[in-house]
């Protein structure tokens, strides 16, 4: 049972690569990329809520198709969506939903010896998977078509406090600094490890790594604080927000509003 270091490295690298690809796609010239981030944040969030509220499978399916069309128009490749969103969600939520097919009481549609598949069970599984897939696709669309700092600044339209926007931005920034440190630490560890360590030793190494990272983080936060003060920070956060909604943005907003309202109506 070796390989936990490799698996941690793989997770860290995957997160970093995912962010790199998201940044790259977000700066390309697709349909959603050109929309004002505030309109996108509000519009996609509204659709996600509608997905959660709908009581009809057909409405959820229609919203899924709309999300896929928006993705195609925004340079988000179907293969990427499948690899990042659709398949992982299917495996995870699918595994959770599967027993419901048998366990949900109701009208039996097929009997399998000791147990039976029920119509209600099938519908329950379809609701769970359909909602999870559609909502995940919509939220992936947001980060794939909008640079993260813009997503954050757009949160101001929900009256999100300035200080929270600043902390979210700074957290994202330091995720990459700490990720790099962790990666270097694990790679150094990996290169020095000969043979397989006993399990207790592996645990001790993992928690020491976490401890090193923690004390470095605390030290770094102190230095960042100094760097902020050095440039006039006195505890108050000010942000520069320079979004300008154009005519097309209003059209998009109307479009999102229309789809959301219609889905809400049909999905009652």
């Amino acid at each position: 049972m070796s390989g936990y270091i490799e698996r941690t490295i793989a997770s860290l690298v995957a997160a970093s690569e995912r962010a790199a690809i998201a940044e790259q796609v977000a700066f390309s010239e697709g349909a959603l990329q050109r929309v004002d981030p505030r309109v996108k944040v509000a519009g996609l969030f509204a659709l996600i809520v509608v997905v959660a509220a709908s009581r009809r499978l057909s409405v959820i399916a229609a919203l899924f198709v709309i999300a896929a069309i928006l993705a195609a128009a925004s340079h988000v490749r179907m293969r990427r969506l499948a690899g990042w969103v659709w398949l992982p969600v299917l495996f995870f939520t699918g595994a959770i939903a599967l027993p419901a097919i048998f366990l949900t009481p109701g009208h039996a549609v097929a009997s399998l010896g000791i147990t039976a598949i029920t119509e209600q069970g099938l519908r329950a599984a379809a609701f769970l998977i359909g909602r999870a897939e559609t909502a995940s696709t919509l939220s992936a669309l947001l980060v794939l078509t909008t640079p993260w700092p813009w997503v954050l600044k757009a949160l101001r339209i929900f009256r999100c406090p300035m200080i929270v926007v600043a902390i979210l931005g700074m957290t994202y920034r330091y995720i990459f600094v700490i990720l790099q440190t962790a990666l270097e630490m694990f790679e150094a560890r990996q290169s020095r490890t000969v043979g397989v360590l006993p399990p207790s030793e592996r645990r001790r190494l993992a928690s020491s790594a976490a401890g090193v990272l923690l004390s470095k983080s605390v030290q770094m936060s102190g230095e960042v604080h100094q760097a902020m003060r050095s440039r006039g920070f006195r505890g108050e956060i000010h942000l520069l927000q320079d979004f300008r909604a154009r005519a097309t943005d209003w059209c998009w907003l109307a479009g999102f509003g229309l789809v959301a309202a219609a889905s809400l109506w049909y999905g009652r």
Partner: peptide
Amino acid sequence: HRRVGLVFQNPDVQLFNPTVFDEVAFGPLQ
């Protein structure tokens, strides 16, 4: 702090904003 500026040794400590533009704008915004 406007008249005296310090460039830290570790740029990861000094670059705490999400983008380069925001970074340079931080001081003036304060």
